[in-house]
Amino acid sequence: MNRSPLKALLGAVLLAFSTASFAAIDTYAFETAAEEARYKALIDELRCPKCLNTNLSGSDSPISADLRRTVATMVQAGKGDEEIREYLLARYGDFILYRPRVMPATYVLWFGPALLFLLALAFVARLVRRQRRAEAPVPLSPEEQAALARLSQAVGENSKA
């Protein structure tokens, strides 16, 4: 089989990526599946304060483990998602949120892309309109019409002669 080395390589690559998503192996007992789902969603969306680009679920750092435990305890205690976010926000600041709050400092972040898209639309619309105008036949001015009439008359007289 000459396909198998490739397959093995692909497998190895996939295996290398698989660890990233299962860094958090600590397990907590939740009463309902909904609670567990909320816990998982929260640790996916909260950022590890020690690492620049990892969420709580993907980090092996001790502080992430502590914060996962904190989130689990709060979920088990029946706290709401918003309450848990507020709790961590009050202690670690906006850094902890991977989904930034909507506030003046983040307006550019939240509305910038939509604004850029609108600008791009306006730009394209202008381009298209200009293109159409360039293609449309321009009606002759009265002077031009008079000139055309004179010319065609001259041509007619020439051909008669």
Partner: peptide
């Protein structure tokens, strides 16, 4: 247990 650390926002 690091609970005061969490209250203080300690991360390192």
């Amino acid at each position: 247990d690091g609970s005061l650390g969490i209250e203080l926002g300690v991360y390192g």
